[in-house]
Simulated assay, not measured.
Amino acid sequence: MSDTAALLTTPLHALHQELGARMVPFAGYTMPVQYPSGLMAEHQHTRAAAGLFDVSHMGQLRLVGPDAAAAFETLMPVDVLGLGLHKQRYGLLLNDDGGILDDLMFVNRGQDLFVVVNGACKAQDIAHIQARIGQRCQVLPMPEQALLALQGPQAVSALQRLVPGVEQLVFMTGMAASWQGAELYITRSGYTGEDGFEISVPATHAEALARALLAQPEVRPIGLGARNSLRLEAGLCLYGNDIDTTTTPVEAALTWAIQKVRRRGGERAGGFPGAERVLDQLDGQLPVTRKRVGLMAKERVPVREHTALIDDSGQPIGTVTSGLLGPSVNQPIAMGYVQTRYAALGTSVQALVRGKAVPMEVVALPFVPPRYHRG
């Protein structure tokens, strides 16, 4: 059996082929990395108009039962109980050492918590959630659902023609809707730094909805290549690159995702895996030896993941975890981990690219200001 034969396909597989996509293996699926117009054009089109992404490889699940929110809160350093109806939040599943098992999005839909996890982690995530809280609530995977992301400043114009009412959503809120007999759940969110939507749609209707969206003048299909460059410019982590089980939320500079109520002094402080270590790091009781930072190269040399970072005397101080030539900023950008004393903005470091030292500077994230619609 060849490697490709073992790969899964999304409900839009035939459409990607029809559109001339170059398909690559990703998270156990065969996925479109780019279409004929190419990564650069796809990236710029999403920033200027609207891009349609197939993200059906992601894991979708429902947590059902009166105890679901309290149970889910025991797995993450995040306020689940306080989340309002149809409000969405970013969460981090942690292991017992405070390392990140996955990052995810979840919505309080009233009758359930709707959770979206990363494609490469979904089997382990579902097993982990089931093992830890399966006796307190139902953990129901949703393999029958596809997921589409429509991203860019004109996404709302395109989508509201098909689903009137979506224009009333603001960033990190959701709504149930129907389209041609299919029940949808739409959130105003995404992973590009742009305004946009994620649409959970029955797999049976995914291709028809994708075609209807692509028929809108603003919309073009966008592959994984541009999805990666857009999220990096937005300063957003890619699981497996920028965050993993060896990184804590504090080291990963994701402390904004830990609400006050779950910190020491908060009414529901701790009570999540690795709480002691994470809260000690947060309070400064445990030294943090490295930090995730943004980096910009001073020369036009792309600096890729796994590139070593050194100080002026040539001593190793860290590693690049994501890096490329940013199409919108038109400069080589990267994220990586450096020893804490090198994490201050404006610090000079060097990247070792094929034996040559490329000067870089620690800069603020994101590289491109976000344009989320906050109302």
Rank of each mutant, 00 (worst) to 15 (best):
Y191L: 08
R89Y: 08
S2N: 15
K260P: 00
A21Y: 06
V320L: 01
L8Q: 15
I100W: 04
R371T: 15
V250F: 05
G326L: 05
Q135E: 14
G240P: 03
Y185D: 11
Q259C: 00
T321L: 02
K260C: 00
I126Q: 01
R300P: 01
G326M: 03
F272V: 07
E183C: 03
V338M: 04
L365I: 10
L230W: 12
A297W: 01
Q154N: 09
R161K: 12
L12F: 13
S322L: 04
A155V: 06
H128R: 07
L224D: 07
S328V: 12
R211K: 13
G240C: 02
Q44D: 14
G266T: 01
H57A: 12
A14R: 14
E18A: 02
G65A: 06
L83G: 09
Q151W: 10
D280M: 02
T192R: 06
L63K: 08
A210G: 01
R262W: 00
V115C: 06
N118L: 10
A208K: 10
T319G: 00
F26C: 08
A275M: 01
A206H: 02
A344I: 09
V139T: 03
L169A: 06
L214F: 07
T10Y: 09
Q285W: 12
A215Y: 09
A27K: 05
A48D: 15
Q138H: 13
R304Q: 13
